[in-house]
Design a protein around this nucleic acid. Sequence first.
DNA 1: TATTGTTATACTCTATAACTATA
DNA 2: TATAGTTATAGAGTATAACAATA
Lengths: 148, 148
Amino acid sequence: MKDVKQETLTDTVAFRLGTLGAITAELFAERLAAHGLKPKHAGLMALLASGAAASQQDIARTMRVTPSLVVGLADHLEELGAVGRERDSGDRRRQILTLTDRGRELLALCTATANAIDEELTAALDEPLRAALRAALAELAVRAGLPG
Amino acid sequence: MKDVKQETLTDTVAFRLGTLGAITAELFAERLAAHGLKPKHAGLMALLASGAAASQQDIARTMRVTPSLVVGLADHLEELGAVGRERDSGDRRRQILTLTDRGRELLALCTATANAIDEELTAALDEPLRAALRAALAELAVRAGLPG
DNA sequence: TATTGTTATACTCTATAACTATA
DNA sequence: TATAGTTATAGAGTATAACAATA
């Protein structure tokens, strides 16, 4: 049972990840909009919470976006009072972003939103299959070098 | 073991589908570019092959894009000789798109590309987990009303 | 009037390149 | 010179709105 080639494009993992990912991301974005946030804002806050990145360059690399994009994300989160920006005393070119209490609140909201989507999305799966899906996605994320 | 709330955003199915979907779609796009195609062209051809849609309005609805976007996709595929456009004799407002032999060749190329990505992507998964991932994504696709 | 396909336009997201301040 | 952050600009992808042909 190895090398199971899918005969149709739509049956491949690659195609389904792409389409389901787009639909899910859009749904996530719609629900976050009520809180003035977009998925990338949530991802950035999650990154800060995990301690995996702190300076804007670190964040850009980990999120796989350009540093210039991080500027706008951080600006917005700062306006919301979700993050603080502090110059690194050791290297004054760097800015260290830190999550505020408000940021932790907003991140918890984002996580709750994602959990709600999970439940709706996987309602049709029985528990073993749901657990397998989580495990498989977690392994793919690790292999892709994604944080979390 | 019900209602397993993920404590971190990055551990949710929703967030992982979004990020992995984006990465996979980008990889798919890069490899299709060699053949002058983008993922949406591949999706459109797959739709025609499945017989799930034929007119541009049908295609737009099934692909969840606006009809005006289908115009450009069909234009490009027609230029490549991958699809033919014929006015519906019963309703001359409609245009029925049909896959040509060249279109079937190109679709096979796209499918092979997606299969190759599947193998690379799921190389770290053992066979039962890989099968579970396929089954879970298939079920999610059905629930989301996706074709295939 | 309503619908199909089309065109023109605008919007969103993101990257690239040039700039500044620090190193 | 090289790097961190910023700003200005450009490109890709897509939607919305207005239009022509047909129903």
